[in-house]
Write a protein that binds this DNA or RNA. Sequence first.
DNA 1: ATGTAAATATGATCCAGATCAACAGTTGTC
DNA 2: GACAACTGTTGATCTGGATCATATTTACAT
Lengths: 260, 260
Amino acid sequence: MPQTKVVSLEKLKTACKNCGLAKLCLPLGLENNDIERLDAIVQRNRPLHRGNHIFQTGSRFGSIYVVKSGTIKSYTQCPNGTEQVVGFHLPGEVVGLDGIETGKHICSAKALETTAVCEVPFSRLEELTATVPGLQHQMFRLMSKEISKETGLMVLLGKSTAEERLAAFLLSLSVRFHSYGFSSTEFNLSMSRREIGSYLGLALETVSRLFTHFQEERILEVDRKHIKILEVDRLFQLLSDQNGCLERLQHPHNTETPGQ
Amino acid sequence: MPQTKVVSLEKLKTACKNCGLAKLCLPLGLENNDIERLDAIVQRNRPLHRGNHIFQTGSRFGSIYVVKSGTIKSYTQCPNGTEQVVGFHLPGEVVGLDGIETGKHICSAKALETTAVCEVPFSRLEELTATVPGLQHQMFRLMSKEISKETGLMVLLGKSTAEERLAAFLLSLSVRFHSYGFSSTEFNLSMSRREIGSYLGLALETVSRLFTHFQEERILEVDRKHIKILEVDRLFQLLSDQNGCLERLQHPHNTETPGQ
DNA sequence: ATGTAAATATGATCCAGATCAACAGTTGTC
DNA sequence: GACAACTGTTGATCTGGATCATATTTACAT
């Protein structure tokens, strides 16, 4: 029976209403009917391989993308060759909202590992949001969340020490993996030390040393890309000492609110 | 004719279609008809005095606000008393988008000087955007711009030197004042050195020294809060040396694109 | 397998900018 | 108009993290 093959093929094409990410992607229950209309415009392309781009700086904006599995890195390339990472996007998270304003992307986005994304053509989405008020509200919330997230990162980059930055980063990953249904204490990093450093405004050597340091302190167990958080509390403590405000800012999406 | 008097009184209550900021606030021509519907829900309250809050961290989100004149500072308060500035909002710019997601504001916003804002109740705005597709698109653009702006700031905070940060800050102000119809080369700062420092992730002493330094270099003339830019090119140069990508990121709103 | 490039770890040194300190100019207040 | 409370300038010192340098491990291509 070709059953297996069919199932594995179908996995990629799960309708929104059966998608494990629906609660992240569509946090507030839309009518079944509406979900189906959204479903109809979503394009499910074949998975991206490590290094494949979804879009590049300056390219025409046409769609937004929801990560289904894997990791997307968004970054800008400076003329001198160095790159600046501006975001890591995990399953359930959206990429490409930056392009709406000007119609061109202001950064590039590429897969850090084998990654599946749903592509949502924006003009079709707009037609839909215009007629489905619940969906429009969802979009506003989504974009607001993105703004809040970046505000939190600004605070982190503005005043925190290297130690606080890495602690915040690890906690953020932990929370996000957890909400995707994975372990919050044990996971693999899909990004390099250099990429983490770029994102956090640190040198890769500093990131490497901090991992060693956290390991010596028995806060983490680190084996290259594999991370095991031994003491979440100590990580939180590192933040709250100076930056109580960060907890709130870093994970505003954590507190599910019974919608507006 | 009592023209003069009427005009000055009316200034505060100018209908959107006569507002000098319309091109910033409503960048793409809406139908006259639609503008009037928007106009009908806008609340024009009395001006705020220096120090007055529009909203505070944790307060219920109900409206977004457009600055008509003056300056709004948004910031977070850390438990240890220090504050972190997360944005300065000049005329034509919007404040409060952070609250949409959770229904509560994640930062506080206060006037740095006498400031007039238009209050737009969000639920009424949503009703309107649902029926006026052009306005919905405008809102998406607006929020996308906010995301892009913050991405640019992240890049700035992530890897730039103190000199580059202040140069970028001054250029950003210059561009924004210009688009509001003021001089792009001579203006008064409404924020203190400490607030600039907080925003840029620098100590206030560093900001002060940099102003002195730029003055010695004949790039600026500085007299306390009064700034005169003598050589814009040198400021741009400071950025483009290392961070060509910043120019693009810092002023994505600068390049007016012909619709959609 | 084997060579080559990329990613990590770790030590040694250096420096941009923070912090500490003292002072001067400004603003507000009673 | 005098006192207090900010705000800004400038100097001296200190330090967290960048940078430079090297070795080791891993990943990939042939």
